[in-house]
Amino acid sequence: MFDALWGWPPPVLDPAGPYADKVTVLAWVLLALGVIVTAIVCAALWVAIKGPPRWKQRLGGESAVWIGGIAFPGVVLTALLFWGLTLTADLTDDITGNEQRIRVTGEMWWFRVQYLDEAGRVVMEDANEIHIPVGQPVVLELRSADVIHNFWVPHLSGKKDMVPGRTNLLRIQAGEAGQFGGVCAEYCGGPHALMGFVALAHEPADYARWQQARLQRLAGPNTTGGVGRQLFMESGCGACHRVAGTEANGLAGPDLTHVGTRATLGAGILPNHRGTLIGWIGDSQGIKPGNRMPSYDTLSAAELTAIAQWLEQQR
């Protein structure tokens, strides 16, 4: 997630898709107008302090107030408002049926991700990772399970609030394949600063293959097993986490059916490999203080390793 916040060029000024392009254009125009207005104010200030008496008199006159104080800002700001709203109107266009629909639900402090079919039924579930096809519009249905969160991938779109009891639509589209960091951009308590995700844009053919692999995995039985699986179940992990095809069917925490393929752990904050898996399970409170998963410090190193090894196989 951290690559959403810094880098060069700054992610917020480095659009990677048509919708983000518009937001960036809007930002530059606003900045340019801001600079012009500041320059005018500075010039007027100079005239008021050091200018010739005739200029001073004109600046202090009634017409200057009417023109510079009311007419100019009125016209410019109204024009800007209409232009800005028109420019970004299609970012929130309704669902037409030609897009990939993804429901993203903000939860303290991670993102639940559900891929929907045309009818809006959940096809597969994931967490903290959004896979999208390059060059095709994606409609995100943004929700919240608790407090107000905010969905923001600077490379792909502007910010959009996730409000409890509402579904806010946001369109994104990637113009190029790549991995883009995203963050929660609305303070939501506790470890808000460690609530992130990644958006991965694939070429359409790769995207279809990825989708196919996931569906195949969901259709077949889960053949992974061993000590790790047994420990996972015995430790009660399944009360909060779901792993498709096993008895783990908890809904409170992130779905771990495909955790072995994820780029990150802990909601976009750590790279995903066996080491960080062990670290997260054993001491998630040390890494992300206040998150809702307890540190499993009652497990031995060998047990943690076995669980991590089993989770790595969930692909």
Binding site: I269, L270, P271, H273, G275, T276, I278, G279, W280, G282, D283, G286, I287, K288, D297
Partner: peptide, 22 residues
Amino acid sequence: KQAGCAACHEIPGVTWPAGRLG
């Protein structure tokens, strides 16, 4: 920083995380 070593270790020069498992 990229490998996430600090998920388990407190490491001088890395402000976050400072894992305590290792």
